[in-house]
Write a protein that binds this DNA or RNA. Structure first.
Length: 675
DNA sequence: ATTCTGACATCCGGATAGGGTTAC
DNA sequence: GTAACCCTATCCGGATGTCAGAAT
């Protein structure tokens, strides 16, 4: 299809003058230091980084690499330092991130009027004049691996930015730069925050889960036959034209120019990445093309996306994304408006929007390196359930003993048992909410909700590279309630302690802010709950466990009218309190308070508690939590999570409750028009 | 020494078959 | 008595991480 590099003058300009560290025109050097992500000059890379543009430009991976290398060379100290493994975008950011930093990056933007407008999903990197993607020509995506450099679409952002992109290199730099410039793309008006017709907003539904992995540097297994991602990519989109048609797909690009190695309990760069790899890097959502209403109606899951290292794979190439082991990748979501027949229309600008979620970065491996990651996978992936029982035998019963025996890796050992168990809500972060939900309130499973046996999923879950951060994060950091989602988050930005748990890393935080995010995506708000009623159709994981959840929680299902975009996008639909960060909910910290617990409680009880004990036993047996409780031999004192603090209750508010609660935050909810 | 591969055991959900119950 | 429906058991495919051995 049309791969012609239709780049606006602004874009062209931006692509030619990438200046290291200048991605944050309004940021001070100190701030840059916090940005964490390397800022590397990548002249011409902006366009090339796009699988489409690259094809059209006939660029080679090597050229990409060279450009990247060149940019590094010219980028100076900043970028050089960024190449440190500790600067991969998480660890250090967290170390240095504090309340002030959070404020600085989230709220201090001149373009960002107030903290109250900082709570929004990731805005896209709009591509005003970018040639649309085409599903008709998959080959166009069979491009070389570009080093993440903002992507073609990112570069197009410059259209609205007078300063274009003085810097690029890594995606975030560009994004931040864009955001810091306060581009008009992102409406920071409290009244219209993020509500820009035609401009989609995307929530990473399972963001909390991603964060859990991200804190340890996510690893994804790649096999010849292809391995599914876990966590898998799952998004919620809003802001699309309900009647317009869109293609939605994900591509995976190199997140940095390094080859990585797990050494000494941590990931360290080891030479240059091999960018001379071909293969499909794009996974088109099977529902594409479809209407905006369709996309907004349900969660968009990419559970069937498989990662492989088999460059010559011929089967299911459409489902396979070819990657290289020990390379760091960054998935990106692309939303491309197409004609009704699925064809592209490049005549209109702004039809391509790209979303990058830093927390979804991962290193492709053929075998897990970090045992913390392994354990997280086992703990959260239903398919790995069979390995959970090994806990008793493999480990001595103390989850601390089970920790990664990596040097200097003692994050969990720093956790107070109570705090650890208090992370009950973390389960809600799971990709498979239902699995845990089923047993969450299982009678007799005392402390089940808080029996995250293996992994302290909050701030305590720090990788060896994050040991400095020992601050006890507020468990409900990501517990989004209709009334507090945005404001709470903003407030949290000032909370140094919370900062640790805040998105899991400063980089992420920054990405939000820089990307023009007005508020934390509060992904869970929309997804952790909504999936209940939308999992029936989505492919992949979503089709497995979720249905169970639905079948057993009919009352919950009713919370998400799947046939009504309007209702879905209503405040209640999107903002139902979702435990995104999964941490235990501290009622006292929740705006909803204990009073509001009653309703969710009733709801859950009606859905679960009334289930015949016999059935519940059966269900709970595979819930994970139940097993964990059994394995952990949890003592009453070790399971402080009371019913009132159960995350599920907050998570499962009914629409009525949602509306009631949501009304507390008019500013935010006004974003989602009630039908 | 590091990385990759394939076999393996395990788990889950879907599909199917069989049996039991109920309604006509 | 028959058909329809429901429930349960079983089989199968696909998924997981583990592990030992091969490859680099």
């Amino acid at each position: 299809m049309q791969l012609e590099p239709r780049v606006s003058p602004a874009i062209a300009h931006s692509s030619k003058c990438m200046i290291v560290g200048s991605g944050y025109p309004n940021a001070h050097a100190s701030e840059l230091a916090l940005l964490e992500y390397p800022i590397i000059s990548i002249c011409d890379n902006l366009e090339r980084s796009s699988p489409l543009k690259k094809n059209s430009a006939g660029m080679t991976n090597q050229s990409d690499a060279d450009n990247f290398a060149d940019s590094k060379d010219s980028s100076g100290d900043v970028q050089r330092g960024k190449l440190s493994p500790d600067l991969d975008g998480v660890a250090d950011a967290r170390h240095t991130f504090d309340g002030s930093a959070g404020e600085r990056y989230l709220l201090s933007q001149s373009a960002q009027p107030s903290p109250t407008t900082t709570m929004f999903p990731y805005p896209s990197q709009h591509a005003p004049t970018h040639p649309a993607f085409s599903i008709a020509s998959p080959s166009r995506y069979m491009a070389h691996h570009p080093v993440i450099a903002n992507g073609a679409y990112n570069s197009l952002l410059s259209n609205s930015s007078p300063q274009a992109y003085a810097s690029a290199g890594y995606p975030y730099a560009q994004q931040y730069g864009h955001a810091y410039q306060g581009t008009a793309f992102y409406q920071f008006s409290s009244a219209q925050a993020g509500l820009v017709p035609g401009k989609a907003q995307v929530y990473l539904c399972n963001r909390a889960l991603w964060l859990k992995f991200h804190r340890h540097q996510t690893e994804m297994i790649i096999t010849k036959q292809g391995r599914r991602m876990f966590p898998f990519l799952s998004f919620n989109i809003s802001g699309l034209d309900p009647t317009a048609h869109y293609n939605i797909f994900v591509d995976v690009i190199l997140a940095d120019p390094n080859h990585w190695r797990f050494q000494g309990g941590k990931w360290v760069p080891c030479g240059k990445a091999d960018t001379n790899v071909t293969g499909n890097r794009v996974y088109m959502h099977p529902d594409s093309p479809n209407t905006g209403a369709h996309w907004m109606r349900q969660e968009i899951s990419f559970g069937k996306l498989k990662l492989t290292n088999n460059k010559g794979a011929t089967n299911n190439t459409g489902q396979m994304v070819v990657l290289q082991s020990l390379h760091k990748y960054q998935p990106r979501l692309h939303v491309v408006q197409v004609n009704e027949d699925g064809t592209e229309d490049t005549s209109q600008p702004g039809r391509v929007q790209t979303f990058t979620f830093p927390e979804t970065q991962f290193i492709a491996v053929t075998a897990y390196q970090n045992t913390d990651i392994t354990q997280l996978k086992i703990d959260h992936n239903p398919f790995a359930k069979g390995f959970r029982d090994n806990y008793d035998t493999v480990y001595t019963g103390c989850d601390i003993d089970r920790l990664t025996p990596s040097p200097g890796d003692s994050p969990r050992s720093q956790i107070m048992p109570g705090a650890r168990y208090a992370m009950a809500g973390s389960f809600l972060q799971d990709q498979f909410v239902s699995s845990y939900a089923k047993s969450r309130f299982h009678p007799g499973v005392g402390g089940a909700p808080g029996t995250d046996r293996s992994v302290p999923l909050s701030n305590s879950l720090l990788s060896p590279q994050q040991t400095e951060d020992t601050t006890v994060a507020s468990p409900q950091r990501w517990f989004v309630t209709p009334a507090n989602n945005r404001l709470d988050f903003a407030a949290s930005a000032y909370d140094a302690a919370a900062a640790a748990d805040f998105a899991g890393n400063a980089a992420t935080l920054l990405s939000y802010a820089a990307a023009g995010v007005k508020a934390l995506p509060l992904p869970g708000a929309g997804c952790s709950n909504r999936p209940l009623g939308y999992y029936g159709e989505p492919p992949g994981w979503g089709t497995r466990t979720p249905p169970q959840y639905c079948s057993k929680s009919s009352s919950v299902l009713s919370c998400w009218p799947s046939n009504s975009v309007g209702s879905r996008t209503s405040a209640s639909g999107y903002l139902v309190p979702g435990l995104e960060e999964g941490d235990a909910i501290a009622p006292e910290r929740s705006p909803l308070g204990g009073a509001d617990d009653s309703k969710p409680k009733d709801l859950t009880e009606s859905s679960w508690i009334e289930t015949p004990s016999s059935i519940k036993s059966i269900d709970s047996s595979d819930s994970g939590i139940f097993e964990q409780a059994k394995r952990r031999r949890i003592s009453p004192s070790a399971t402080p999570v009371s019913e009132t603090s159960s995350p599920l209750k907050s998570e499962m508010l009914t629409p009525r409750e949602c509306e009631k609660n949501c009304s507390k935050d008019i500013g935010y909810y006004s974003f989602y028009p009630h039908s």
